[in-house]
Amino acid sequence: METMSPLERVLRGLALTLVVVFFMFPIFWIFLMSFQTNETILAIPPSIVFSPTLSNYAALITGKLQTAAGTLDIAFMRNLGNSIFLSVASVAVALVLGVPAAYAFARHKFKGSEDIAFTLLSFRFAPPLLVLLPLTQYFQWLGLSNTYFGLIWVYQLICLPLILWIVRGYFEDISADVEYAYRIAGHSWFATFRKIALPLAGPGIAAAGLLAFIFAWNNFVFALVLASADKQPVTVGALAFVTSSGIQYGQIAAAIVLSVTPTLALALYAQRYLVEGLSLGAVKG
């Protein structure tokens, strides 16, 4: 740091600013749009000077969408609730199933363990559209289509491999001797898992959980096909803003702001755990 010349410092600042603007500007623009009416949004040239309105948020919260053709009912708040419920429940199930599995894969090399782990990972390679059609048929036979249970099940295709593979890496980073030491001290393997492995891999588990949450939240295609209106998350619900009398940009912007807020808040909150998690390997012994 001390060796940086003034020129380098200026260039570095410039580069950082560019990156920040590049990534933050769309969010900033959407945020501005959410306080504008469709007319001001579509005005040419666009202007950042406008009289702000809360009508977009009001429409979302009351569920009454005013359009040129009349009043439309939209279920945005319900979609938001669905998103939260589906994502939280999916990540919870994936953690309960994935963390012990990750531990088993990390600590015990049994016959075919690599194959099983890889098969689970391969769920992430398959394009969702490929499995969607047979899945829809199965779900209809099983009576799982349009149920929360079914959706959470399908979301495991997204969450479980992610958690399994990330957390496995963190477990592998824990020195086996530390666990041996606890076993030799007289504790069962389960107590060792709970008191040693879990706390030491904690930051990694939090990071994996967060990523899985974001992936689940952003999922579109599974929910589009497998759920009807009352079970749909915001990603699918946003389609409702494309109405017969035009696209409701203002409401879309407000909806995006509302739906990005939970993940953004979670990411900001978990940031320190993520950093801590990345440096876990450095604090052995």
Binding site: D177, V178, A181, Y182, I184, G186, I196, G285
Partner: peptide, 20 residues
């Protein structure tokens, strides 16, 4: 017999202390 039932004490070369 599992390690926890053998009743031995052990000190490791790399100490293997519980960091948390």
């Amino acid at each position: 017999v599992d390690a926890e039932h053998r009743g031995v004490g052990m000190a490791f070369q790399n100490f293997a202390l519980f960091p948390h």
